[in-house]
Computed example of a mutant assay.
Amino acid sequence: MIKLLRPFLLLLLVSGLGFFPLHVFAAGNDGSEIKVLDMRLSPKDTLFNIANMKPGDWATRTITVENNGVRDFDYHMQLRNTGEKKLFNELVIEVKVDNQELYQGKLSEFQSKLTRKLKSASDDQLAITIRFPEHLGNDFQGLESSFVLTFIAEGKDSKIVEDGAQGIIGSSGSSAGFRLPATSTNLFNLLLLGSVLSISGFVLLLINFYKRMKLAQ
């Protein structure tokens, strides 16, 4: 009788497992829960927070994408503007992994189909650089750009996990190595002052010359 019940009990057990998430039954050596699909970012909240970038400046930050789950997954990145468009449309972003360039171009043209495969218990260290183009002039001083870089992981069972980090780039009131010429310059005043000083010196020389001539007579 017991032998007849064994296949039935085994079938009942397998059927019951289907009603529970797999990660409920996965645990680490310390008793902590191990998820089937688990992506983590470091840092996860703020990646860039720069208030004084100038034309010609750039900044590089490293963000780590970790696969702490029991399954491999594919992930890709999306970038979304969350502030004013003027500076956002001009800033340049570069994304590299192990000196391999994944993307280089404007923030506003960032391609969302940059897919990477990440095995379980491994990580990617992405070097992300934001560049303030040198040709941007006075019109972009005092502006600010904010954006969110979102990472989306997807496993074989089509389960999706999302996480993201934000960036804030502000421009200062002066530029490095490049500045549009000011319309109200002091150059004319300096030239006028130099001319007056030159004429005054010449007049003094003439006066001294005539004084010497009178004394010689």
Rank of each mutant, 00 (worst) to 15 (best):
M1H: 13
I2V: 07
K3C: 01
P7F: 05
F8G: 02
L11D: 11
L17G: 02
L17P: 00
P21R: 05
H23R: 12
F25T: 08
G31M: 03
E33T: 15
L37M: 01
D38F: 00
K44W: 01
F48H: 13
A51I: 07
N52P: 07
K54C: 09
A59L: 14
T60W: 03
R61Q: 13
T62C: 04
V65I: 03
N67V: 00
R71P: 02
D74S: 04
N81F: 03
N81S: 01
N81W: 06
G83M: 07
E84D: 10
L91Y: 09
L91R: 02
Q104M: 13
G105Q: 09
K106T: 07
S108G: 08
L114T: 10
L118W: 00
L118T: 06
K119N: 05
S122Y: 00
I128F: 04
R131A: 05
F132H: 09
N138V: 15
F140E: 08
S145D: 14
F147R: 07
F147E: 07
S158Q: 15
I160A: 11
E162C: 09
I168D: 02
G170M: 12
S175K: 09
A176N: 15
R179W: 00
L190K: 13
L191F: 10
S195L: 13
V196N: 04
I199H: 03
I199D: 08
F202K: 11
L205M: 10
Y210W: 13
M213S: 14
L215W: 11
Q217D: 08
